[in-house]
Simulated assay, not measured.
Amino acid sequence: MTSSSLRPTPDQMTDYYDGMGALLQVAWNDNLHFGYWDGPEDESSIEEATNRFTDMLAARLRVGPGDRVLDAGCGIGKPAIQVARTTGAEVLGISISPHQVEQAGERAEREGMTDRVSFQHVNAMDMPFESESFDAVLAFESIIHMDRPAALREFARVLKPGGRVALTDVTVVQEDPGNIEFFEGFPRKQPAKNEAHIASVVEPGDYPGLMTDAGLQLDELLDVTENTKRTFNLLLDGVIKHRREFERKHGITAEEVLGSSTVEDPGKGPGCVVVTAHKP
Rank of each mutant, 00 (worst) to 15 (best):
Val101Met: 03
Thr168Glu: 04
Gly271Tyr: 01
Lys249Met: 14
Gln174His: 05
Ser261Leu: 04
Lys279Cys: 11
Ala196His: 06
Ser260Thr: 04
Gly64Met: 07
Met1Trp: 11
Gly162Arg: 00
Glu175Gly: 00
Phe182Ile: 11
Asn123Pro: 03
Lys229Glu: 02
Tyr17Lys: 05
Gly185Ser: 12
Lys229Ala: 05
Asp169Ser: 04
Arg248Ala: 12
Lys78Ala: 11
Asp169His: 01
Gly35Val: 07
Pro208Phe: 09
Glu47Leu: 05
Leu222Lys: 07
Ile76Pro: 05
Thr212Glu: 15
Arg60Pro: 08
His121Val: 11
Glu90Ile: 07
Glu255Cys: 06
Glu47Met: 08
Pro79Lys: 03
Lys78Asn: 13
Glu130Val: 06
Pro204Ser: 09
Val69Asn: 02
Ala192Lys: 11
Phe119Arg: 04
Tyr17Met: 06
Pro204Cys: 06
Thr87Pro: 14
Ala72Tyr: 05
Thr231Leu: 09
Arg244Val: 05
Asp219Gln: 12
Gly269Arg: 03
Trp28Val: 07
Glu102Gly: 07
Ala108Ser: 12
Ala108Asn: 02
Arg52Trp: 12
Asp71Leu: 08
Val239His: 04
Asp42Leu: 11
Val274Gln: 00
Arg110Cys: 10
Ala156Trp: 04
Val122Gly: 03
Leu57Lys: 01
Asp237Tyr: 03
Arg248Leu: 14
Asp30Tyr: 08
Asp55Gln: 04
Val173Tyr: 00
Asn123Glu: 15
Arg188Gln: 11
Gly271Val: 02
Gly163Ile: 07
Asp147Glu: 15
Ala136Cys: 11
Ala151Ile: 05
Gly105Thr: 09
Gln190Val: 13
Pro177Val: 06
Gly112Thr: 09
Asp42Ser: 01
